[in-house]
Design a protein around this nucleic acid. Structure first.
Lengths: 353, 353
DNA sequence: CTGAAAGCGCTAACAA
DNA sequence: TTGTTAGCGCTTTCAG
């Protein structure tokens, strides 16, 4: 099952009759200019006369030459790739972070390359190993929790490492994110201030979702300091988060009808819960308050605006990219720490105090 | 703004005291085995005695050696990367396609590398150029519409090219997708069969969203054959699709209150429209029918199930990956055509005929 | 089973 | 402004 041979009539190439990757030498021969000068033209380096430059560019375009970065990288010991490792793309959270990264890297000459771990430390290790073996200029990786091997690889890579999303932990090098513990605490404070007392928590079952767990921990800690505790909790995994939000809400309220607040670990299940409550005619936020987490813009389209907390996703991507690109303006070399402040968006599902 | 010098006390490395990428030679010296044999061990190639193998593996692990794929690729003329180019990640559609690709590639030794174009042909060209310059083993790219330069690059690359999502057009090499023209037609047929006659269309403004446009074309063609035409249309760009769906629906029904069906170009705006209609107490699907496109699982959590058509996203990713990996089992070498059949999901927003 | 030599396609460094 | 000479770190190939 290999590619067709050069002579295969079905896949002819007008521009590249050799049907093998063109080299600098081909351009050199076609233009009558030395390989070295061709290389300079193609990289806009050094001084080249306009006449020569034009000859080279015409030849390169005519042949359809695409430089071989593998050889270039090996020779120059420079790779314009930034490895970006996230747990998931289905989450809505991460695409936005990646958007911030791409945008910021756009005019730095650096190129993001994405890898996905599915919340598995083993996958993370494999993905990091694979990516590091291409000797990228930097790594941006979600979270502060990694296997020992992953940490060792990153530490030894000798390139900027930026851990993102979360600042509650021990970074390898730089870190950009929010404190999820604090986010949980602040939400608890707002809820208590609004007069709610009988509170339930709904979240993901995934033990690897450290950030959701930290929010819950902060949340409970704050409740405890107010003499309260979580009266019920429910966890899910898999399936449509919106539908799960409905189901879990129904289940929890059937089991614990006295609850007056539900804190969801993400906006999607929160939105499901909200829709369910509205259908049941439950008085939100009068009898029952609701809040989620992330500030996804989906919430703008709901019948009522779910209280949430913005996770600064885009900005996290931007700041991380700046650090990798050496544009953070901090004057620091590595070891930066950027803690962003999530903004509480009270929406319409928490009583005004 | 460069990395700290070797002696920087803040970023010490226990495993890699040199703080420069380790080479095969380092492992060779540490293990007392020739570079060549070390290479063989690390790639599981050729016969190596167990004793030697162990010596090498121990040394490599102890040092924290990560192979340099750049050098390896240059020497072997083999790169285990598959370039995957999509217009957007915010779309929910593409993450799922990427999931199908990753999953299928998982045990082929190939690694997907993702690039995003933001629906811009110029960005696509730049991304393709960048990716091709790493000499990947294959390319999977969304859509059949590309700039001439992009098409030329892909044709000349001498590797499997799979265009995905859409089969209505002229593929460069292989193609995996659905016919969006036909999808539009089928939706129109179902709507007409259910007795709706005064139909409006709501979609994206983006001229580059060829697939949405093809659906609309197919839709209108089928209407025309039934002696009908679109009575109103509305387009949006930017913002929360759910919120836009509400706004557009409100605007269209204010302008054209006689409409009895709204066809949305994607599920997100459709969901917004559905929520709005339910709030307004509009009789859906009695007085007004609604349908979207994509079959996103978000719909499972809505108060009523929006009619939609599944775009076979995951399967598209899987089939495309199989072709690139040479596992499609077709016996063909290049030039495969896989047309999948989107399934109509009538949901609760089209009257039963 | 193991090793030595050559070179992948490009670029750094120097020479002209 | 242009060309020449050595490699970059690995794998291929062939010889022991």
């Amino acid at each position: 099952m290999s590619r067709p041979p050069v002579s295969d009539p079905n896949r002819p190439s007008l521009r590249n009759p050799a049907l093998r990757p063109l080299t600098l030498r081909d351009v050199s021969e076609a233009s009558g200019v030395s390989e070295m000068t061709v290389s300079r033209v193609l990289r806009n380096r050094g001084d080249v006369s306009n006449a020569t430059r034009d000859k080279v560019l015409v030849a390169a375009k005519m042949l359809g030459y695409v430089p071989n970065k593998i050889a270039g990288a090996l020779a120059s010991q420079r790779v314009n790739l930034v490895a970006v490792v996230v747990p998931s793309l289905g989450n809505l959270v991460f695409p936005e972070v990646l958007g911030g990264i791409s945008e910021t890297l756009e005019d730095t000459g650096l190129q993001p390359v994405f890898g996905v771990t599915n919340y598995s430390p083993e996958r993370e290790e494999a993905v990091l190993y694979e990516m590091l073996s291409w000797r990228p200029s930097g790594v941006i990786v979600a979270g502060l929790e990694h296997s020992d091997a992953s940490r060792a690889m990153l530490r030894n890579a000798g390139i900027p490492i930026v851990e993102i999303m979360d600042v509650d932990g021990d970074p390898i090098d730089s870190v950009v994110g929010i404190s999820h513990v604090r986010a949980g605490r602040e939400m608890a404070r707002a809820i208590i201030a609004a007069g709610y007392r009988r509170i339930g928590f709904l979240g993901t079952k995934m033990p690897e979702d450290y950030r959701a767990r930290k929010r819950m921990q902060g949340f409970e800690a704050e409740l405890a300091e107010a003499g309260l505790n979580l009266e019920d909790r429910e966890f899910y995994s898999g399936g449509s988060a919106l539908a799960k939000g409905r189901e879990m809400t129904a289940a929890m309220l059937a089991r614990s009808p006295h609850l007056d607040f539900l804190y969801y670990s993400n906006d999607m299940i929160g939105a499901g819960g909200l829709l369910w409550c509205l259908e049941k005619g439950i008085d939100v936020p009068g009898k029952l308050g609701l809040a989620g987490f992330n500030g996804v813009d989906l919430l703008d389209g709901l019948p009522r605006k779910l209280a949430t907390m913005d996770a600064c996703r885009r900005e996290i991507g931007q700041r991380a990219a700046q650090i990798v690109a050496g544009q953070s303006g901090s004057g620091l070399v590595g070891g930066e720490r950027v803690e962003l402040t999530p903004r509480l968006q009270p929406g319409d599902t928490i009583r005004k105090p």
